[in-house]
């Protein structure tokens, strides 16, 4: 089998060029590919279209690539935690395509699963439905949505092996599995790269067939957006 393991994040993002479309996993700051985002900063590719549920915060996650103006367009469901984003959007320097979260997840899933389009009820009767084909099934209206694909998908998992098999932890799974399948080239960064055979095949979330490059991240900050806890 071709060796999928690369030395580090810099090696993993090689070939990402200005103008490309990139998917990045994560929900808020949970399950984002921290090390690859740092490598993208260094790489300097510009005019990127980024497909990601959120846009990070001012000084972390995709917020870092916004600051350096490497992102031309965001395709997301919610972008509310980022002042730099707001500034660029209002100034007309940034395009944004807002998509209902379930539709975003399913469009990415469809991209990886070879389904060019599907009907969903989400957004019927709203501005999201403008210009889209509407069809009625069993008395309810649905709108046609198409697949999303990417030149590169960058996902973050808890554990992975050299075959690219991945296991996620907690709610850090979120968009990562669908994105892994929807990239022409998929980069997986993991907290722990384990020997082939160590992951129990019964509990692998993403089969390695979707992953072309894998590496163990140097460092995970795992920043918390809303630190909530109880006293006792």
């Amino acid at each position: 089998m071709a060796n999928k393991v690369v030395k580090d994040a810099d090696k993993a993002v090689e070939g990402i060029k200005s103008g490309m479309t990139i998917m990045l996993g994560g929900f808020g700051l949970c399950g984002i590919p921290e090390n690859s985002i740092q490598a993208l900063l260094k790489l300097g590719a510009k005019d990127l279209t980024c497909i990601s549920n959120n846009a990070g915060v001012d000084d972390f996650g995709l917020g870092l690539l916004l600051k350096t103006r490497q992102i031309k367009k965001m395709i997301s469901s919610y972008v509310g935690e980022n002042a730099e984003f707001e500034r660029q959007l209002l100034a007309g320097d940034l395009e944004v395509d807002l998509i209902p979260q379930g539709t975003l997840a399913e469009r990415i899933r469809a991209g990886g699963a070879g389904i060019p389009a599907f009907f969903t009820p989400a957004g019927y009767g709203t501005e999201v439905a403008e210009g889209k084909e509407i069809r009625e099934y069993n008395g309810k209206n649905y709108l046609l949505e198409s697949w999303l694909k990417a030149d590169f998908s960058i996902v973050k998992a808890w554990k992975g092996d050299a075959n690219g098999n991945l296991i996620y932890k907690g709610t850090a799974r979120n968009f990562n599995p669908m994105m892994a399948a929807a990239g022409k080239i998929t980069i997986a960064e993991v907290e722990e790269l384990v020997p082939v055979g160590e992951l129990d095949p019964n509990f692998i979330h993403t089969p390695g067939v979707y992953v072309q490059r894998i590496f163990q991240g140097d460092r995970y900050e795992k920043r918390i957006e809303q630190r909530t806890f109880r006293e006792n």
């Binding site: 469901s77 972008v79 969903t120 989400a122």
Partner: peptide, 15 residues
């Protein structure tokens, strides 16, 4: 005002 996005609200209310 700033548009933050619909998140999952449209999927939830439609279904």
């Amino acid at each position: 005002k700033m548009v933050k996005g619909m998140g999952g609200a449209m999927d939830l209310v439609s279904s």
